[in-house]
């Protein structure tokens, strides 16, 4: 089990305990996984024809299977995104001008609108699946290191690594304060008192965060920090990476090629 370091339940931070089943994807070079996720996303977003989009979605589904993504967690995330966009997709056929398809009362659904909604749904689902399969299976720290090796500015990478590191710590601090409130009989309801109290809670959390960050900086300085962190990790292109590159490039070519059919 390779541990995947970021997870939340939608309501609160779940942290770093969850793992995912090991797969061949985990043996690939993190840099390549990030690059091909990006290439796939760009190619898919810019595709206009349905054969390309269907191909993209099926490649994404295959990758998700290949990466042995946790079935329940992945479905939950994909469905959450679909529910998030469903209202816009339902509205689209009625707001897009074009040839009438069906009439519901005064409203008229158009063919163009329906196709547009369908295209958006396909693109969004294909990209989310591919992202979760290729990059989402990376350890968050490895992801930061890979970004650094891809020449993303140092400061940005440091900030990302700090954010990932302290999510867990700050969440613990939050839970502690929330427990203290519970002990004093606080329950969250839809009223001004709740909103104000939670505002105070996060104001206090910011105060503690500032003080914590001062302690962190002092500790870093004590160990010789001068604005540079050394990210030690070796990433090497191996045999399976060449194979992956060939497959990924040819699949991208298929998506682009179907466009011209």
């Amino acid at each position: 089990m390779a541990t995947q370091h970021l997870e939340h339940s939608g309501v609160s931070w779940k942290g770093q305990q969850l793992g995912h089943k090991h797969s061949r994807i985990d043996t690939l070079d993190p840099r390549l996984r990030i690059i091909f996720t990006m290439i796939f996303a760009v190619v898919t977003v810019f595709s206009q024809s349905f054969p390309s989009l269907l191909a993209a979605l099926s490649f994404a589904l295959l990758s998700a299977l290949f990466a042995r993504l946790d079935y329940k967690r992945t479905v939950r995330r994909v469905v959450a995104m679909d529910l998030f966009i469903i209202f816009m997709l339902i509205l689209l056929p009625f707001t897009t001008p074009g040839d009438a398809l069906i009439n519901i009362g005064p409203l008229q659904a158009t063919q163009q609108g329906l196709l547009l909604a369908l295209a958006i749904g396909l693109k969004a689902n294909a990209i989310i699946l591919m992202t979760l399969a290729l990059t989402g299976t990376l350890n968050a720290t490895t992801f930061g290191h890979a970004l650094s090796k891809l020449k993303i500015p140092d400061k940005f990478v440091y900030l990302l690594l700090f954010t990932v590191r302290y999510l867990e710590v700050i969440n613990r601090e939050y839970k502690k304060m929330r427990n203290a409130m519970k002990a004093r009989a606080f329950t969250a309801r839809s009223n001004l008192h709740t909103w104000r109290t939670l505002g105070y809670l996060f104001g206090m959390l910011l105060v503690r965060s500032l003080e914590r960050s001062e302690r962190i900086l002092a500790a870093m300085k004590c160990r010789g920090y001068t604005g540079k962190l050394h990210l030690v990790s070796t990433m090497k292109i191996q045999r399976q990476d060449y194979l992956f590159t060939i497959i990924a490039l040819s699949l991208s070519a298929v998506i682009i090629g179907l466009h011209f059919l």
Partner: peptide
């Protein structure tokens, strides 16, 4: 500023 911005970002 890195620790401060990073910890705030997490918060």
């Amino acid at each position: 500023d890195i620790p401060k911005v990073g910890v705030f970002s997490a918060t």
